[in-house]
Amino acid sequence: MNLNLLFSLAAILVLGCVGYFVPNAGLQMFFGVILPYIAVLTFLCGVIWRVMKWAKSPVPFRIPTTCGQQQSLPWIKQNKIDNPSTTTGVIIRMFFEIFLFRSLFRNTKAEIKDGDKISYEWEIFLWVGALAFHYSFLTVLVRHLRFFFEDTLLKEKLFFVGIIETLDGFFQIGLPIVLISGFVLLAAVLFLLSRRVLNPQVKYISLAADYFPLLLIAGIAATGLWMRYIERVDVTAIKQITLGIVSFNWTSIDVMKSVSGTFYLHLFFICTLLIYFPFSKLMHAAGVFLSPTRNLANNSRMVRHINPWNPEVKVHSYESYENDFREKMIEAGLPVDKES
């Protein structure tokens, strides 16, 4: 087996053992309260640090990737989304990129056919998998807000959480109702993982940093499903812990001890993800907003872009040169623009 995959699997197994067995050895306070604080703090500080590092990087010139006809003569039709020349065009392009993964939609795969012919085929499943994964993850995340806000607040102000949960359980299968997003999340993450394991070309370029987050999120989704549909953990006790964390008014140690190891495993995986997030490829979440190849208008032929931090260059124009040396030039018989 691939060493990168093996390493990631081993890491997940070790983390899983730590998350499942260690909290029950009397360390509930650390794994249930202190570690989440550390994780949230690391996540936020890390994201700010990464984004500010990007904000400081010089982007002196326009470098958008152009995927269509740029603005030209009036009778040549411009592709206003894929080669935008205005801010509106850029906003539309960014909208499609962030919400619909437009550039991924154009994914192709290269294959050698009939012995020596290379063919490029449109491959849509990466886009489908990515879309399913990101949107189900978002739904799961929003649904989890019910653990972090009090019920009155959820019913009065944050009613979208309830609406999303109702829609998620639209088919009303079983009790507790099957929420589709959780299953879609696990299925999509396993599909994205299988792509990296089964497709030889993709496997060749996959690193441990590619396998690890996928396995970690699969672990989070699996433990979540396990708690809801199989083990049926005590939700009220878990909400006591989560509300205790956000109100800095921690619940009693007896409640923390009553909650099963699967919950601590789930929480430990999430803390790992939060801590890992800012230092990994997962930062594409912020990076997608800051890609100069996407968020700049292609107007280089209409507007002169001067590097804003260019130092002032001292110029010596011909006029002032002639002023300095006029007499000597006349003496040497050189032609001058202005006689004395």
Binding site: V40, L145, E150, S247, N249
Partner: peptide, 19 residues
């Protein structure tokens, strides 16, 4: 950051951990 920390702002000083 404000969105991420909103549960903390809203929950501050509450005693809802009693269950």
């Amino acid at each position: 950051v404000a969105i991420c920390l909103s549960p903390f702002f809203m929950g501050l000083g509450s005693d809802s951990n009693k269950g």
